[in-house]
């Protein structure tokens, strides 16, 4: 039966580069649809990248996967101990919950940005040798951070529950808020992935900028509410609405206001839109810059 196999289905033609049929929204719609198809096809690669990364991270350590839970607990304990001493907090338990509500999402954000910016350069070997939709790399990095976040959140909830955190109905919003924040991070991450491939200086800059951004966001400070002038200034910080929502939900057990939610959703879409367009317009040039 060694014959030239004729495929029963006529494979449809793919064109490279994709023909520019129309300009404007119609063209981008086609680009998005094409990407959705590509990502669906290569989704197992993303899955594989995420699971292997998580598995390898604590590979060969005695506690193994438990570290995903222990790590955030130890980190939060240290931060709480240091900051409650330095800033002389009366009620360290209250403060610990506040810190936890802001710090964990921030780790998701900062981790995603840092890893996204490096992901193209780090996968040079792959990109120059085989074809993969490049979106796979930043997407996998964000998903890895997202998984870590969910695990840490669960672990810390168990701990914080003992410190007096309440389980409130508002918590049903957590997945939505998390996804919005991850989308916001992915958008920025896409821009940074391109920027860092063209200018390797970006990676060094990001570390510093993220550090500054961290201190500019009410995570370790502001647990007693913000004075009006300061709060107005905080609204200039695009990470603020997200962090605030997490704090409202986790610490105060309150529903965030609709305005806050919509602002966050808007920011996430704008970031994702800009990131996507930037990435797609430079995608084909990345391979020459490695």
């Amino acid at each position: 039966m060694n014959q030239v196999r004729t495929s029963h289905s006529i494979p449809h033609a793919e064109y490279f580069p994709r023909p520019r049929t129309a300009n404007g929204p119609a063209r981008w719609l086609a680009v998005v649809r094409n990407d959705a198809r590509e990502l669906a096809k290569f989704w197992p690669v993303v899955q594989n990248m995420v699971t292997s990364d998580l598995r390898i991270r604590y590979h060969r350590s005695m506690l193994g996967f438990l570290w995903t839970l222990i790590n955030p607990i130890l980190m939060m304990a240290t931060l709480t101990a240091v900051f409650s001493q330095v800033f002389d907090k009366r009620d360290w338990k209250e403060y610990a919950i506040y810190l936890f509500a802001g710090q964990l999402p921030w780790s998701l954000f900062a981790g995603s940005l840092g890893e996204c910016s490096a992901c193209i350069v780090a996968n040079e070997g792959l990109i120059r040798k085989i074809y993969l939709p490049k979106l796979v790399f930043p997407l996998a990095r964000v998903l890895i951070n997202l998984t870590t976040f969910v695990l840490s959140l669960t672990a810390l909830y168990l701990l914080v529950g003992m410190l007096g955190a309440r389980f409130t109905p508002a918590m049903v919003l957590l997945p939505a808020v998390t996804l919005l924040f991850a989308a916001f991070a992915l958008g920025l991450g896409l821009v940074l992935a391109v920027a860092n491939t063209f200018f390797r200086d970006t990676a060094h800059l990001i570390t510093v900028v993220l550090q500054a951004w961290y201190f500019a966001t009410p995570i370790i400070w502001g647990e007693n509410g913000l004075p009006a002038t300061l709060e107005a200034r905080c609204w200039l910080n695009p990470a603020f609405p997200f962090i605030r929502m997490f704090q409202l939900i986790i610490r105060d057990g309150q529903w965030p206001s609709l305005t806050l939610f919509l602002v966050a959703a808007g920011l996430a879409s704008v970031s994702l839109g800009i990131g996507y367009v930037t990435f797609k317009t430079h995608e084909d040039k990345l391979v020459y810059r490695l």
Binding site: S7, I10, P11, H12, A13, E14, Y15, F16, P17, P19, Y131
Partner: peptide
Amino acid sequence: GQLAVRGDV
């Protein structure tokens, strides 16, 4: 220019 491919590579 353009390259058209039909099928898995």
